[in-house]
Amino acid sequence: MRKISTAGSVFVSVFGIIVLVFGIMEFVVLGRYGVEGVCWGPLEMSGMWLWWTGIILVGAGIMYMSSANNFESNIHQLAKSVVASIMIWIMAGMAIFDKVAGSIPGEEVWVNPPADFLAGCGPPFTPAIFLLPVSLVIIYFIRQRHRASPNTSSEHLVEE
């Protein structure tokens, strides 16, 4: 049994806590402000899907944290983090898609001019978008594992 001391273990534990906190925050917001939600600076939490994304964030957070033990040596632990990351990618991907698709058609014009389009794509963002860049770090660990055991060269990553 290895201890939680490697970079990967530290990363998934810390990031897992952050994800979990975001998830819990969504429930707190929903409880206090309802679907109206809140907008704190660039961070937005609102809408009827809040409880749904809250569940996903809590789930992903716990999955990250539980993968900390033996993170580098046990492929199942790494895979758990990968699946948690995929969950965040799905949420962030859809949030970005929503922003982009929502900013193209204009009120008076068919297609918004570039300036309006960019303004539409700007903040506020949902938690998943903030978590996205950090969650991409997991790709580094996948690569690292790949390098460590070259005989698993046939291993593909499947999800998006």
Partner: peptide
């Protein structure tokens, strides 16, 4: 055991599979 197998395993196990399924359904609907 490859990473792909491990992921396949994790996505059918209820504890981890259900949160993942919720995320997939969310993505589907969105």
């Amino acid at each position: 055991h490859t990473l792909k197998d491990a992921i396949a395993d994790i996505t059918v196990r209820p504890k981890t599979g259900i949160p993942f399924a919720i995320a997939v359904i969310y993505g589907f609907w969105m």
